[in-house]
């Protein structure tokens, strides 16, 4: 799980172009939206693409996305259960 969390942080930094942020700067338990990284709706779209491209997970229901993207740890747990690649 810890390895997956680290990889996920690196992928988030890359797809969201968070140039000045390092993996260790991201608290895996902190909210991704509103607080923490303060991501927005466009970032949510980028994360949906990331999930499908890297882990084969399709998120179709926006309400489902809200739960999955609560924090990096929640994302990692969801990925571990649902990944197809």
């Amino acid at each position: 799980m810890e390895e997956l969390i680290l990889n996920l942080k690196k992928q988030i930094i890359e797809v969201l172009n968070l140039e000045e942020i390092k993996p260790e700067d991201i608290d895996e338990n902190a909210p991704l939206f509103g607080e923490g990284l303060a991501l927005d709706s466009i970032d949510a779209l980028e994360l949906i693409v990331l999930m499908e491209k890297n882990y084969g997970i399709k998120i179709k229901d926006p309400n489902e996305g809200k739960e999955i993207f609560k924090s990096v740890r929640v994302m990692a747990e969801y990925i571990e259960q649902h990944r197809t690649k």
Binding site: V15, I42, L45, E46, V49, E52, K53
Partner: peptide, 13 residues
């Protein structure tokens, strides 16, 4: 490279 799926929304916008 990847076809018409999984395209980055930011570049599209």
């Amino acid at each position: 490279r990847e076809g018409e799926s999984l395209l980055k929304p930011t570049y599209f916008m």
